[in-house]
């Protein structure tokens, strides 16, 4: 790039400069960069993005340091107070009480719920999706029907699937009809010890199809000649997967993992509809807690502070994944 722009500058200088071009040069704008038409094309998007996304995000960042009343529109600067209120007592205090007892610090407890949810759902969503994609990438009868069936839950809204699963998992629901002969019938949704698991089950069911589609797309991009070459070299099915398919799915994998982690940390709709964060805080996730604190209890500053903390966590995970991916990049 550096070479090019220097070359550009030289040409501009050589061909003689008008006022505008001179101004551009002084500002360091090269011909390549001054694409007015391009800027005009992105302008509507940038405008909408700024007004409806960037602006509110920056304002939320500001709110995190204030005490704000939606009604009077008044805000008082309180520095880091909101963060302090949200974060204390620290999770390790009193023998990790905030992680065991929602009453001690609801924010840490909701983060604990979110972490359990993420750990439980992300790997299964991803590798379940990969497994199904691999199976459906073969010559299978009625392949498209299977693909459609696995993708169907993705098209359902979270709220609708939460309602469906609450019925399925109810004490007298259809799942217990099958489990009761085995003596395993249980009020899955209504018991604080199993409700989070029930939501995880529903999230895996809903998320697997999405990842399957992405992996299927990724699989189409693996060059066939690599498989041919590896076959000729006598590679087993596992070796072909390990050394051809897997490295070539790197980009897909990165995208899927990042999206799944972000999705898991932001889980809200299904938790709200399933049991409104209950029973007994069992499904109170981080975003649900933010919603409650800001919009139900009118502490917008604290809500914004929680949102910033959640943002930092998600950002850290995405960045770490990005760095990790860089170090793993393959080249043939």
């Amino acid at each position: 790039m550096a070479y090019e722009s220097e070359a550009d500058e030289r040409t501009t200088t050589e061909s003689g400069t008008s006022g505008l071009a001179g101004a551009k040069r002084r500002l360091g704008i090269t011909e390549d960069q001054s694409n007015l038409a391009g800027l005009l094309f992105v302008a509507p998007n940038v405008a909408v993005f700024s007004v409806f996304l960037l602006g509110p995000v920056l304002y939320a960042f500001y709110l995190a340091f204030t005490e704000y009343s939606m009604l009077t529109h008044e805000s008082t600067w309180v520095g880091l107070d909101n963060f302090w209120t949200v974060l204390t007592p620290w999770p390790w205090e009193n023998g990790f009480e905030p992680l065991r007892d929602p009453g001690a610090n609801t924010w840490w407890f909701s983060l604990r719920n979110t972490a359990i949810y993420a750990i439980g759902t992300v790997p299964l969503q991803i590798y379940g999706g990969l497994a199904i994609a691999l199976m459906l990438d073969k010559r299978v009868r009625a392949k498209s029907a299977y693909r459609a069936a696995y993708f169907m839950p993705v098209m359902l809204s979270g709220a609708a699937s939460a309602v469906i699963w609450r019925w399925l998992l109810a004490d007298n629901g259809i799942i217990n009809e099958f489990l009761s002969p085995l003596g395993l019938a249980h009020n899955w949704a209504g018991d604080p010890n199993t409700a989070l698991g029930a939501i995880m089950l529903l999230a895996i069911w809903g998320g697997i199809g999405f990842n399957m589609i992405l992996f299927l797309a990724g699989l189409q991009n693996v060059p066939q000649e690599l498989y041919e070459a590896s076959r000729i070299d006598g590679a087993s099915a596992w070796q072909r997967f390990r050394h051809v398919t897997w490295p070539n799915l790197g980009n897909t994998n990165f995208f899927v993992i990042v999206m799944a982690i972000i999705g898991a940390f932001q889980v809200f709709g299904i938790a709200l509809v399933f049991e409104e964060g209950g029973p007994y805080y069992a499904t109170t996730t981080a975003v649900l807690r933010i919603y409650q604190r800001a919009f139900e209890e009118n502490y917008f500053g604290e809500g914004a502070a929680m949102a910033m903390i959640l943002f930092a966590i998600i950002f850290a995970f995405s960045y770490w994944q990005y760095r990790y991916r860089k170090s793993e990049e393959v080249d043939y």
Binding site: P192, P279, Y280, Q292, E297, N298
Partner: peptide, 21 residues
Amino acid sequence: PESGEIMNVLTPELEGAITGQ
């Protein structure tokens, strides 16, 4: 004025009693 927050504390605890926690 703090009805929202009071109910957000009280309701889960009632739920806790109802579900035997």
